[in-house]
C-alpha cells in the first residue's frame, strides 16, 4: 500500500461559547470530536452528513484555516499541527481548497488572471509572460477560454465561477484538493459539468480529494470511499459501494432512505427518522444518534460506541453490530 497523502488522527475541535466582558468560555461546541481517516494518492474520500455534523470544520482543520484543539494532521508523514506559519508554507501548496459559494469565494476586484495567478505569484518565481502562459493553460484545463483571464468574476455564471475556483486550486499542482460542497450551489445541469470536470482532473493529475457533501447521489458519483459523520463523530467509513449497498450504521441507512429518488414508480414507505439533529453544544450521552435511532436500546444511552472494523477496510460505530444477529 502506498503511503497516504493525508492522515488524520484523533482530530478534535471544540469551539468556546464566550460570555461576559472577560469572554470566559461558558460552554464548548464539540464540532469535531476525535476523527481518524487516511486519504491515498489519487483517491476521493467523501465526508457526508447533515448540517452541524462537523464535516466542514474537518475540511478547514485539514488546511489549518481553523486550529485544531487536539489531534494530528499528517501530510506525507509530517504532522503539520505544530508547524509555524513559515514552516507551513511548503505544505500549503500541497493542499488547496475549493469553496462552496462561487460568488463569495472570488475577489470581485481582481481579474480572473490575477485570481488564478496569485498562488503562482506566492509560491513560484515566474516572469510575467511565463505566469500568464501557465494561467492560460490552467484555464484551458477547466474549460475556460484564455480571454477569461482579462475579465472580472461578475461576468461569469455560477458554474463558470466554480471553474475559476477550481483553476485557482489547481495552479500549484497540489496533491490534495479539499472541496467543501463545491456543487451544492449550482443548478443540476451545471452541477453535472463541474462533477465531470473534477473527475477528469483527478484522472489527469492523480489528485486526491477530500470532498465534503450532504448529497449521497453526488458522493456516489465522485467518491471512492465514504465517511459518514454525525455530531462530530465518524459513524461509518468504508468503500463507497459497500457503504451504500449495505450500510451498517442506522444513520447511514436513514440518510440513504431519505434521499429522494427520481422515479415516480419507486415511491415507497421510507425509514423516515424523527426529529432534528441535536445541538453539538450539548450532544446526547452515549451514542450521539440514540435520540433519533429506531433501533435504540439501553446500552446506546450510556456507552459511546467505538468505530470498529466490521469488514476489511470498513468500520462502523454502533452497539447493534456487537449483538448476535
Amino acid at each position: 500500500m502506498t503511503a497516504p497523502v493525508l492522515s488524520v488522527e484523533g482530530l478534535t475541535k471544540h469551539f468556546p461559547v464566550e460570555r461576559g466582558i472577560l469572554r470566559r468560555a461558558v460552554a464548548w461546541v464539540r464540532a469535531v470530536d476525535g476523527v481518524d481517516f487516511d486519504i491515498a494518492p489519487g483517491e476521493t474520500l467523501c465526508l457526508v452528513g447533515e448540517s452541524g455534523c462537523g464535516k466542514s470544520t474537518v475540511a478547514r482543520l485539514v488546511l489549518r484555516l481553523t486550529e485544531p484543539t487536539s489531534g494530528a494532521i499528517r501530510l506525507g508523514g509530517t504532522d503539520i499541527t505544530t508547524l509555524s506559519e513559515s514552516e507551513m508554507a511548503p505544505y500549503r501548496r500541497k493542499v488547496q481548497m475549493v469553496f462552496q459559494d462561487p460568488y463569495a469565494s472570488l475577489n470581485p476586484r481582481l481579474r480572473v488572471g490575477q485570481i488564478v495567478g496569485e498562488p503562482l505569484e506566492n509560491f513560484e518565481n515566474l516572469g510575467t509572460a511565463e505566469r500568464n502562459e501557465r494561467v492560460g493553460a490552467i484555464l484551458a484545463k477547466v474549460g475556460l477560454r484564455p480571454e477569461a483571464a482579462g475579465r472580472y468574476p461578475f461576468e461569469f455564471s455560477g458554474g463558470q465561477r466554480q471553474r475559476i475556483g477550481i483553476a485557482r486550486a489547481l495552479a500549484l499542482r497540489p496533491e490534495l484538493i479539499v472541496a467543501d460542497e463545491p456543487v451544492s450551489a449550482l443548478d443540476v445541469s451545471v452541477q453535472a459539468q463541474v462533477l465531470n470536470l473534477l473527475m477528469d482532473l483527478q484522472e489527469e493529475f492523480g489528485l486526491a480529494f477530500l470532498f465534503v457533501s450532504h448529497d449521497l447521489a453526488v458522493v456516489e458519483h465522485i467518491g471512492h470511499r465514504i465517511a459518514v459523520m454525525y455530531l462530530g463523530h465518524i459513524v461509518e467509513i468504508g468503500p463507497k459501494d459497500d457503504v451504500l449497498a449495505e450500510p451498517a450504521h442506522p444513520y447511514t441507512k436513514a440518510l440513504i432512505a431519505a434521499a429522494p429518488v427520481p422515479d415516480p414508480r419507486a415511491r415507497r414507505e421510507k425509514l423516515v427518522i424523527e426529529g432534528d439533529v441535536p445541538s453539538p453544544l450539548n450532544p446526547p450521552p452515549g451514542c450521539r444518534f440514540h435520540t433519533r435511532c429506531p433501533f435504540v436500546f439501553g446500552r446506546c444511552r450510556e456507552e459511546v460506541p467505538l468505530l470498529k472494523e466490521i469488514a476489511p477496510g470498513r468500520r462502523a460505530a454502533c452497539h447493534l453490530l456487537d449483538q448476535p444477529a
Binding site: S157, M199, P262
Partner: peptide, 26 residues
C-alpha cells in the same frame, strides 16, 4: 431529458460513470 440524465442517481454510478451534461448556459 437533459435534466433527467444530469441528476446523479443513487445506484446508477456503477452503470454510468460520467454524468450527462447540458452544455452551455441559460
Amino acid at each position: 431529458r437533459g435534466l433527467m440524465s444530469s441528476i446523479p442517481r443513487l445506484g446508477a454510478a456503477a452503470r454510468q460513470k460520467r454524468l450527462t451534461e447540458i452544455p452551455g448556459l441559460v
